[in-house]
């Protein structure tokens, strides 16, 4: 009888705790991080444009699904003001998007991560921007990652992604670092030692897809900054013999702007599986030899 009463007491106790746990899970469901940003945005719009405009703001998880790119980007759950006029000076995540770039790349057809990096699936800042030690290879290419790697101009890093599509442009408007790097590759005649797109010599490694190289491929023993592929390239372009003492690659005495530009360029040299409609049409002017489209294209 005693045991029976104890069991009944345990059942009530465990039942009560389970009820609390269920309650907590439910309560937690109603307070995701993005909700604070959505109500913040509503407050901002009410303040600037009145309550009526604020009514039009969607609520709940928002996403841009681009079937052709096999991407779903939920960034717009928080970044709600991208296409609003009059929010050019608003703080992030509410700031209006620079409009020029979106004319040729409409958000509905491109999403966000194809240019910015980050984890489109995610609905919290840490996972979405993926700048910490998360299991996500492509962090948001912006201030934080740039500062961690001590690059000259953090904001420009995003141009790496421009060049994944615009690789065979001689010049791409709006990607000044990449354009600069392409110019250096021409002037310094890297193809004397490197093969790129099937052309050049094999004194140094083939660089056609060097951007895919696994970070563990590099030796970081002599790299001063962050242990990352771009950290290695930055140091290597600064002076190849600093990181690879036996290297035949000459020291070109590049400054910080040049090292960042070249690092960004080589990081963008990757294989891509994009639908042909996402590859910019070739320009009238013939592309330079090192960057000529490979035969199979």
């Amino acid at each position: 009888m005693v045991a029976k009463n104890r069991d009944v007491a345990l059942i009530y106790a465990f039942g009560a705790i389970l009820l609390l746990v269920t309650g907590w899970i439910y309560w937690d469901y109603y307070r995701p991080e993005w909700k604070t940003y959505q109500s913040g945005f509503r407050g901002l719009i009410t303040g600037r444009f009145g309550a009526e405009r604020a009514q039009q703001i969607p609520s709940g998880i928002q996403q841009i699904w681009v079937a052709e790119l096999n991407r779903v980007d939920r960034c717009v759950t928080c970044h709600l003001g991208l296409e609003w006029e009059g929010l050019e000076d608003a703080p992030n995540p509410y700031r209006a998007h620079p409009p020029g770039i979106l004319r040729k790349h409409p958000l509905a057809g491109y999403g966000c991560t194809i240019c910015h990096g980050g984890q489109g699936f995610a609905t919290d800042v840490e996972s979405a921007h993926a700048t910490g030690a998360l299991h996500w290879e492509e962090p948001l290419l912006a201030g934080e990652i740039g500062r961690a790697n001590q690059v000259e101009e953090p904001k420009a890093l995003l141009q790496i992604n421009c060049n994944i599509c615009h690789r065979y442009d001689a010049q791409t408007e709006g990607a000044d670092y990449i354009n600069y790097a392409k110019q250096i590759v021409q002037e310094k005649r890297c193809v004397l030692c490197h093969k790129v797109n099937g052309q050049g010599s094999l004194l140094g490694p083939d660089l056609t897809y060097v951007g895919e190289q696994s970070p563990e491929h590099y030796d970081y023993a002599r790299v001063p900054g962050k242990q990352s592929s771009i950290g290695w390239h930055l140091a290597h372009f600064h002076n190849p013999k600093d990181v690879a003492p036996q290297s035949l690659m000459p020291n070109f005495n590049f400054g910080p702007r040049e090292t960042q530009a070249l690092t960004m360029l080589v990081m963008s040299w990757k294989r891509t599986r994009l639908p042909s409609s996402y590859i910019p049409p070739p320009k009238a002017a013939p592309p330079p030899p090192a960057e000529a489209a490979p035969a199979e294209r």
Partner: peptide
């Protein structure tokens, strides 16, 4: 009710542990 009660205790304890 002895076995059924004890069974319920074990069920609740297991579900609770797993949930926590």
């Amino acid at each position: 009710p002895s076995l059924t009660l004890r069974l319920l205790v074990v069920i609740l304890a297991t579900v609770l542990l797993a949930s926590l």
